[in-house]
Design a protein around this nucleic acid. Structure first.
Length: 796
DNA sequence: CTCAATTGTCATGCA
DNA sequence: TATGCATGACAATTG
């Protein structure tokens, strides 16, 4: 039961990881921090320190089996890694040709650096210098075969023997062939070759990966047949591969590594009646290949995984034969893969790339991409190698970005190569990321199920409910993710709006902008004088606030005279159409300026002079000496009063001057009591007028923000309802899966005589400690009743 | 002319 | 206490 639990818990975690990878906010942090630190690493991206540890470990261990990352809970860690593997590669039982590029590169014994290769790879080879040069000899030795590169360690298992250093130069060596055969290749192919290289180089940054993979591969091969080991890559494979007819390379690889897999898998299929454990053992024997591919490409399909897990599942069943040895093997392999994958994580550190890789790989196996978002799939689908290239392309960009801390030299030299990649992948690097971030997840994910089908076809014995259920589950998750993505975006937009709202709802935000920036003031000023441009400018700038107005007025005043400025101001005010704000949300909240009480634009208090600013503006310009009558008519009451009382200074001054200066002004001019009273009234009214305007603006803003808040809440509500529905559906499907799994497990059980347990008489009983027992139904029922009674008693 | 929206003004409270 | 600001209420203005 423990493993059953684990299995389904993992399903949930998968889902969470998926959500996280596509950017949907999943609040797993708290959970992770306390329970699954490594998982957090996976989701949030490995910390450099941690990654480094992995590299060191890989570099310093013979084959990776003994890897023990520093102070990390390996159980959790590897579990989470395995989960990530599952998530990222859903149809594992395939040997991606992607791997080929790795050992192909390493394999070249010549060490001749071709012209074509020099641009990118050569530099890289030299740069990675940190790696040292030891490996080169091994690889380039007489036998130096690709396989050797990887398998050089077969006999000696010298840790560094084949790879780290040597590989770089080997990379260079690949080039000549490339160049030699260039004639036979289309330009595309050549480019693709280049890409393969660079990818290899990039991947080579994590040289241990190759090292390990090769070693693994070799070990496996050796187990199977030494001859095969020699033959595969060396004679036929590499040569043909060098011709770089993508297909050849591809098939060759498949032939080399995957050769045995189909065999075994088909044998699996043939023995569909064999016990689950047997299947699993076979799988375990087979999987290392998949694993090897996996940690490089990060895209290895993994539909076989569930069955892989099955042994674990069965472990808890007392009546089932213990499969610990195989379990250990599998577990070890998983753990190793997990470590290896960590590097891959770096390569595909961004969620988008991870998924992209996955999808690209899916594209390989599923002969078709339903998603239009990945335009380079047209490329990928053409030939196998193209697919490979696409795959690499997918992981490359992030590789260079994410590796720098460790392999900056390599990457620096690599960067110049980027353009090639970009040009090849056309929309790949840019569009894919954006696309990924956008809404095309459906398309991205759809191939997964196809791949699942693929793997199922290759493993007929595993096409039981589990696989189908997994497929189904993944489909569901995918659709859910798609939905969540969509929702996430609307939510993001909403939150963005909200942020804008919040930040702008402050009353003083713009005050710094408008008064402080002369350009804006000038703009508004000039536009204010221009009647035609006025409305437009206002919609953009009018909200900036009064200070702008006043400045504009000030400028105008300087040019035209004491009464012109208010025209612009008045115009601006009259053009404040809230409906405009509705269409320009970002401007809706820009109106709080409160700078009206800032020092001074003289023309300020005269803002209300003219009801028709256009006409006034024109008139003012045409009639150099403004007509007093007209002005008088257009003056505010206070303006007229002030004039009639012969107040020696402008209302603008009266209103806007600071108290001290205002008092000084009053002191300068000896005014009568009536005049003083009028001036004070004018000041009071002027200030109050501006206060009222601000108050009204604020009110309007508040209303608008509230409206938006309501909208946002409505959206949130709708989204939550949708999510709830989806989750309910997920739960339902999970239950269904549990049921199916139960049936599956139960049907595999045999009594001492090898007979199946009758479902009518026996049932699986889950213990509280995670154990699962087969019990007669009567007993089980009694046992379940007892706790019930106890509970009832307790309640009583 | 009516009406609604806008703007100005007053009174009041608060800091 | 003087000053400034915010705001409700009302009036004036405007389209």
């Amino acid at each position: 039961m423990l493993y059953l639990k684990k299995y389904f818990t993992e399903g949930l975690i998968q889902f969470t990881i998926l959500l996280s990878l596509i950017g949907v906010r999943v609040d797993v942090d708290t959970y992770l921090s306390s329970q699954l630190p490594p998982l957090r690493e996976i989701i949030l991206g490995p910390s450099s320190a941690y990654t480094q540890t992995q590299f060191h470990n890989l570099r310093n261990t013979l084959d990776g089996y003994g890897i023990h990352p520093k102070s990390v809970d390996l159980d959790y860690f590897f579990t989470s890694r395995r989960l990530l593997n599952q998530v990222r590669s859903l149809d594992r039982l395939r040997v991606p040709s992607t791997e080929l590029s790795a050992w192909l590169v390493h394999r070249d014994p010549e060490g001749v650096v071709p012209a074509s290769a020099q641009s990118g790879p050569s530099g890289i080879a030299l740069d990675s210098g940190g790696g040292g040069g030891g490996g080169l000899d091994d690889v380039s030795g007489p036998e130096g075969s690709a396989m050797r590169g990887g398998g050089g360690g077969v006999g000696g298992e010298t840790p560094e023997s084949g790879y780290s250093p040597g590989s770089e130069e080997n990379m260079g060596a690949v080039a000549p062939r490339d160049g030699q055969d260039a004639d036979n290749l289309s330009k595309e192919d050549i480019d693709l070759i280049d890409i393969l290289w660079r990818q290899d180089i990039d991947l080579g940054a994590g040289r241990e990966v190759f090292n390990y993979s090769s070693r693994q591969k070799e070990t496996e091969v050796e187990k199977r047949s030494p001859e095969q080991n020699e033959e595969g890559p060396e004679t036929e494979g590499w040569r043909n591969g060098l011709n770089l007819q993508a297909g050849q390379t591809h098939t060759q690889v498949d032939g080399e590594t995957g050769e045995s897999i189909p065999e075994q898998l088909s044998s699996l299929g043939a023995q569909s009646s064999m016990s689950l454990q047997e299947c699993l053992r076979l799988l375990e024997a087979t999987f290392p290949f998949g694993g090897e591919s996996e940690f490089q490409a990060a895209v290895v399909p993994e539909l076989g995984e569930p069955s892989e897990e099955s042994p674990s599942t069965s472990q808890g069943f007392p009546l089932l034969p213990q499969t610990e040895p195989s379990l250990d093997l599998e577990q070890q392999w998983q753990d190793i893969m997990a470590i290896m994958e960590l590097q891959d994580m770096e390569v595909n550190s961004t969620a988008g790339n991870a998924f992209l890789s996955n999808n690209l790989d899916n594209g390989n196996s599923s002969s078709g991409m339903e998603s239009g978002s990945l335009t380079n799939f047209g490329l990928s689908s053409s030939t196998p190698i193209n697919q490979d290239v696409s795959l690499h392309q997918a992981s490359l960009p992030s590789c260079s970005q994410d590796f720098p801390s460790f392999f900056s030299p390599d990457l620096d030299t690599l960067r110049p190569c980027r353009p090639t990649l970009l040009s090849l992948s056309s929309s790949n690097s840019s569009n894919v990321n954006s696309t990924f971030g956008a809404t095309n997840l459906t398309g991205l994910f759809l191939p997964t199920p196809l791949n699942g089908t693929n793997s199922i076809s290759s493993t007929p014995s595993l096409t039981d409910p589990l696989n189908s259920l997994l497929e189904e589950a993944m489909l569901d998750e995918i659709s859910l993710l798609d939905l969540a993505m969509e929702e996430g975006f609307s939510q993001a937009q909403a939150s963005q709006l909200k942020d804008e709202l919040d930040s702008d709802s402050g009353l003083s935000l713009d005050s710094s902008r408008s008064p402080a920036s002369p350009s804006s003031s000038e703009t508004s000023c000039s536009s204010a004088t221009s009647s035609s441009a006025m409305s437009t400018t206002f919609s953009e700038e009018g909200a900036v606030g009064y200070s702008t107005d006043s400045e504009a007025a000030e400028l105008e005043e300087g040019a035209v005279g004491g009464h012109q400025p208010e025209h612009s101001k008045f115009c601006r005010m009259s053009y404040q159409d809230p409906s405009q704000f509705h269409h320009l949300p970002q401007l809706e909240h820009v109106g709080h300026n409160h700078t009206y009480n800032l020092p001074p634009s003289p023309s300020r208090s005269e803002r209300a002079l003219s009801p028709d600013c256009k006409r006034i503006s024109r008139d003012a310009k045409r009639q150099a000496p403004p007509q007093l009558d007209l002005l008088d008519k257009q003056s505010s009451r206070d303006e007229r009063r002030a004039r009639s009382m012969k107040i020696p200074f402008s209302n603008e001054h009266i209103v806007n001057l600071p108290v001290e200066e205002f008092n000084e002004l009053l002191a300068k001019h000896r005014l009568s009591e009536a005049q003083l009273a009028l001036v004070r009234d004018i000041r009071r009214r002027g200030k109050n007028k501006m206060a009222a305007q601000n108050c009204r603006k604020r009110k309007l803003d508040t209303i608008l923000s509230l409206e938006q808040g309501v909208d946002g809440l409505r959206r949130d509500k709708a989204r939550l309802l949708k999510e709830k529905a989806e989750f309910l559906r997920s739960i339902r499907q999970m239950k269904q899966k549990v049921h199916s799994l139960y049936q599956e497990v139960f049907s595999q059980l045999r009594d001492e005589d090898g007979r199946p347990y009758p479902a009518s008489e026996y049932a699986l009983q889950y213990g509280s400690d995670g154990s699962v027992l087969v019990m007669p139904r009567r007993l089980a029922a009694e046992q379940t009743r007892k706790p019930d009674k106890k509970q009832k008693d307790k309640k009583k």
